[in-house]
């Protein structure tokens, strides 16, 4: 027994099973609250539409852009209601939730001190990051799907199953509308990869979970602000937030997919870069927490 390379039953590839990590995160209050809020938000929006009165007089003519038209149409059917739910959450709420899942995952273990015990099991560092990444991605996707699913459900129950309407384009039949909605979800998930990458990198670099989450959101907002400055010209195309609104291209007929492709390229490149640095750094650094 003495010359065994490892304890009986130990295999590096069996450490940190994904389900163990899923349960680890599921038991956390912030996971439960984030997911719960995804279910709650559509209900709040529904209540606001139901009890908020008409309020349709604030139409500012043609200056409202696509967003106001989405609000106007949100009560026209389940698909539009879900679309509205996505539109209001895409800019900030989903960013925060994704930053929470990815930024908190390693940093919180470090701040509790449990990270060093996981590494001493030993869970191989790359495996630890890989499992954390997969589980964080799973929870982020679950949050997105919960938001859309709940919106679609309550919206359809309340407003019925009708074509996806828009004041700017022709109506889209419900079947195709559902596909478009899923396409929008997929694109949003892709753009959120940037936040995921950034938050995960910060999570590896710091022991403070709040710092990683807040840092990722702050940098995201900074990028959005820079994107508003026309003087920056072509540089803005390289900002990670530049193509975040391209999902609206899926609302027009025919779909405008050029920006979708560009946005996906940008997001995937950024995420790969951030995750690459995170893996490179974490597999080499001295864990001092």
């Amino acid at each position: 027994m003495s010359t065994l390379e490892a304890a009986s039953g130990y295999k590096p590839s069996r450490t940190m099973p994904i389900w163990a990590e899923v349960r680890r995160q599921a038991s956390r209050r912030r996971t439960q609250m984030a997911l719960g809020f995804m279910v709650l938000l559509p209900l709040i929006v529904l209540a606001a539409f139901e009890f908020g009165g008409g309020g349709g007089d604030d139409d500012d003519g043609n200056g409202g852009g696509a967003f106001s038209s989405m609000a106007d149409l949100a009560t026209s059917g389940g698909l539009n209601f879900a679309l509205f739910g996505l539109a209001v959450s895409a800019g900030f709420l989903l960013v925060v939730v994704v930053a929470l899942f990815f930024g908190d995952t390693v940093a919180s273990e470090a701040s509790w001190g449990s990270l060093r015990y996981l590494l001493a099991i030993p869970v191989p560092r790359a495996r630890l990051l890989g499992v954390k990444l997969i589980v964080a991605a799973g929870y982020s996707l679950l949050a997105l799907l919960l938001l859309v699913g709940t919106s679609l459900l309550v919206g359809t129950l309340r407003y019925g199953w009708s074509p996806m309407g828009s004041t700017i384009a022709a109506e889209i039949p419900p079947g195709e509308g559902l596909l478009r909605l899923l396409g929008i979800c997929a694109y949003l998930a892709t753009t959120l990869l940037v936040v995921a990458g950034l938050a995960f990198l910060l999570s590896v670099l710091t022991d403070a979970a709040l710092g990683a989450v807040g840092g990722a959101v702050l940098l995201w907002i900074l990028s959005s602000i820079l994107d508003q400055i026309d003087a920056l010209g072509g540089i803005r195309n390289g900002l990670p937030t530049h193509y975040t609104d391209a999902w609206m291209g899926l609302l027009s007929t025919p779909v405008q997919t050029e920006d979708l492709a560009k946005g996906a390229i940008s997001a995937i490149v950024y995420a790969t870069l951030f995750w690459g640095i995170a893996f490179f750094r974490f597999t080499r650094k001295d864990v001092t927490s």
Binding site: A107, L202, L205, T206, D207, A208, A209, L210, G211, A212, G214, G215, L218
Partner: peptide, 9 residues
């Protein structure tokens, strides 16, 4: 906490 975290990050 956030600032400390950022500083460390």
């Amino acid at each position: 906490d956030l600032i400390a975290g950022l500083r460390r990050a």
